[in-house]
């Protein structure tokens, strides 16, 4: 007996394999796509991917666990990623970080209990002369003040899900 959600998952992954090709080089793009849509990569998903690409599940896990954006706990409906780099430090990143933590009631690397928002550090996002900078999902925001940060959190809370997901 196969659970219905497993069947759905298989159809989805088969679609990706069709689109991207059955070669090993499709592995990371497939995992990225699934992570983006489902906000997590669970072991069942990795097993199905392994089977469809004809590689060992351990290989899939080994790759997924290597890349920061693929592994980790399930993410919230929105992900706020504050640039942790030094130019943003100069510009007052700490105050923004505090405001985010305060407003969300969580620390970095955590997700709110309602599954709405995940807060993470980002490696330099290249907005060094415009700090503090952050990404709300895929959108870049610069010169963020603690007040902006609170407004961003409120907007994420109010919104159902990522527009692009």
């Amino acid at each position: 007996m196969v659970a219905p959600q497993t069947e759905e998952l298989r159809v989805e992954i088969a679609g990706l394999v069709d689109k991207l090709g059955p070669g090993r080089s499709s592995l990371i793009p497939i995992l990225q796509d699934i992570k983006h849509r489902h906000r997590e990569l669970d072991s069942e998903t990795m097993q199905v991917v392994a089977e469809m690409l004809d590689i060992h599940p351990v290989e899939v896990y080994s790759v997924a666990s290597f890349y920061a954006f693929l592994h980790g706990a399930p993410q919230g409906a929105h992900v706020i990623r504050l640039c942790g780099t030094l130019s943003c430090d100069f510009a007052g990143k700490d105050a923004v970080a505090d405001a985010l933590c305060d407003e969300l009631g969580i620390g970095f690397g955590e997700t709110t209990a309602d599954g709405q928002v995940t807060l993470e550090w980002a490696s330099c996002i290249g907005m060094c002369d415009q700090g503090p900078a952050l990404l709300v999902d895929d959108e870049v925001r610069t010169r963020v003040t603690p007040d902006d940060a609170r407004a961003i959190v409120a907007a994420c809370r109010a919104d159902e899900g990522r527009a692009d997901a």
């Binding site: 780099t85 030094l86 130019s87 490696s123 330099c124 290249g126 907005m127 060094c128």
Partner: peptide, 8 residues
């Protein structure tokens, strides 16, 4: 891949 902090 431009990952150096401070480079864009």
């Amino acid at each position: 891949d431009e990952g150096d902090p401070g480079a864009f």
